[in-house]
């Protein structure tokens, strides 16, 4: 079991889903200057092949729908990193009519990165923290999502017509 977690923590494939302005910090993180691949973190095209959903910035209701669908397509174990202050409490969009305030009401978040925007160092730091949590068995957001699905659905239903999608 420990070997499995050790391996999982060292091979985090990142889903390519850029939701807000935070995505501009990812190219320097990926490329030679900060080079996240030395930690085994690599971008991946489809949700079914990815381990980590990185929500980079603010989420409008329209994007939240796509995020939830992508998150549910990912295969367990799966992890979510909330990126930037927008995912924590709405950030500068706290009074927008179409931007959500708290990401963890709709999908479980394992690690938050504060800042507007976080630097590549902070992103890599968050990934290392996530790796530590995986090795210790603490990153169990995906289990919580299964166990408390009704609670998450209730929050999602408040702003989206989730029942029409035919999921789960």
């Amino acid at each position: 079991m420990a070997i499995k977690q050790w391996a999982q923590g060292r091979s985090l494939w990142l889903m390519h889903f850029c939701t807000g302005c935070g995505a501009v910090e990812l190219p320097p993180t990926m490329t030679s200057r900060f080079d996240m691949e030395r930690f085994g973190i690599a971008p991946m095209a489809t949700p079914r092949q990815a381990d980590v959903l990185l929500v980079t910035g603010y989420l409008t209701v329209k994007t939240l729908k796509r995020v939830i669908r992508s998150y549910e397509q990912m295969i367990d174990p799966k992890y979510v990193i909330g990126f930037g202050s927008c995912t924590v409490n709405g950030g500068m969009y706290y009074d927008s009519y179409n931007v959500i305030n708290h990401l963890d009401l709709y999908i479980p978040v394992d690690v938050y990165v504060a800042g507007c925007m976080p630097r590549p160092e902070a992103i890599i730091d968050a990934f290392l923290k996530l790796r530590q949590m995986i090795v210790n068995g603490e990153a169990d957001g995906w289990k919580k999502y299964r166990e408390n699905l009704e609670w998450y659905r209730k929050n999602q239903r408040k702003i989206l017509d989730v029942d029409k999608w035919g999921l789960l």
């Binding site: 409490n89 709405g90 706290y94 009074d95 927008s96 009519y97 931007v99 959500i100 305030n101 708290h102 009401l105 408040k158 702003i159």
Partner: peptide, 15 residues
């Protein structure tokens, strides 16, 4: 006359 802050606080909740 649409109060965006009030709407946001009510719909997207404030913790």
């Amino acid at each position: 006359d649409f109060n965006a802050l009030e709407y946001s606080n009510e719909k997207y909740e404030v913790k």
